[in-house]
């Protein structure tokens, strides 16, 4: 077989696989521009007259803006809090090496492996007992708590890669600890901070279970809206699902597009850090 043909076949196969995986996403995005009848038509309509009716409907729903704002606010607030706390914690682990650091790091990582449903009952009872249910601050703290272990773990790897000689130079030249932490060390672990930020952002953005159980009407986010609003008029509300999903996937896609190199660094735990 000539080389050219082989290359062509190879890429054709790759494209085919990609397209198969991308098909559901394409279907949902296309559907958001179709009328309900077009969505349900058999055979599926590839050629249709696009409509923005669904988007107009969605934006005029009374709860949509609340859900969107909640999603954005909860994600950003929880993740900023988590990354800030994790950075300071990781700095201490990396620089002062308290007794049992290795064991604590292992513990942090294993906590991350714990599935959410395993703790949903005690957390629910706790939140009800303390009156934190359906409360933004309560949810933000929960999400931050859930994000911190893994972030500490990632960031410690990055901080270990920043020589303590830098800290010392800062101190010898008259810098305070605050200066050393935020002006000397922090700029050098930016890729790690961004990686931790994106990982956690994706987690909180996609979080449904805890929002549903320990959140409530005032804290409802987009996954909550998708679950609750999927059924309407005795059937699946396809136009709503398609439109909301299309909007829902935009922020993570944009984030990942702009920060993909940091994401790679984060996934390899800083081992290819030099290339950023």
């Amino acid at each position: 077989m000539p080389q050219r043909l082989r290359t062509t076949l190879y890429y054709a196969a790759l494209w085919l696989v990609s397209l198969i995986f991308f098909a559901p996403v394409a279907w949902i995005i296309l559907s958001s521009f179709k009328t309900r009848n077009d969505i349900l038509a058999t055979p599926p309509k590839l050629i249709f007259s696009p409509t923005f009716e669904n988007y107009v409907d969605l934006f005029t729903r009374s709860t949509f803006m609340l859900q969107l704002i909640n999603s954005v606010f909860l994600s950003l607030a929880a993740v900023i809090l988590a990354v800030f706390v994790s950075f300071l914690a990781a700095f201490c682990f990396s620089r002062f090496k308290p007794k049992g650091t290795d064991f604590l790091m292992f513990l942090l990582l294993s906590i991350r492996m714990l599935p959410g449903p395993a703790v949903i009952m005690p957390v629910y009872l706790m939140y009800v007992a303390f009156g934190w249910k359906d409360n933004h601050i309560g949810l933000i703290f929960f999400y931050a708590m859930f994000s911190i272990p893994f972030s500490v773990w990632i960031l410690k790897g990055f901080l270990d890669g920043v020589s303590t000689r830098f800290d010392e130079t800062g101190r010898v030249n008259g810098g305070s600890w605050f200066h050393v932490i935020f002006k000397v060390v922090l700029p050098q672990v930016k890729p790690g901070l961004i990686a931790a930020f994106i990982f956690n952002l994706i987690f909180v953005w996609n979080e449904f279970l805890f929002n549903f159980i320990i959140g409530g009407v005032s804290t409802q986010n987009i996954p909550y809206a998708l679950a609750v609003g999927a059924y309407a008029d005795g059937g699946l509300n396809w136009t709503f699902i398609a439109t909301l999903t299309s909007i829902y996937i935009v922020p993570p896609v944009l984030f990942i597009y702009f920060f993909q190199k940091y994401l790679l660094v984060g996934m390899t735990f800083g081992t290819v850090r030099g290339e950023v």
Binding site: E168, T169, R171, V172
Partner: peptide
């Protein structure tokens, strides 16, 4: 360290 007035060139340039 921050208050001692000593110029320091460490072995690693840092």
């Amino acid at each position: 360290a921050s208050r001692r007035n000593i110029g320091y060139v460490p072995q690693s340039f840092a």
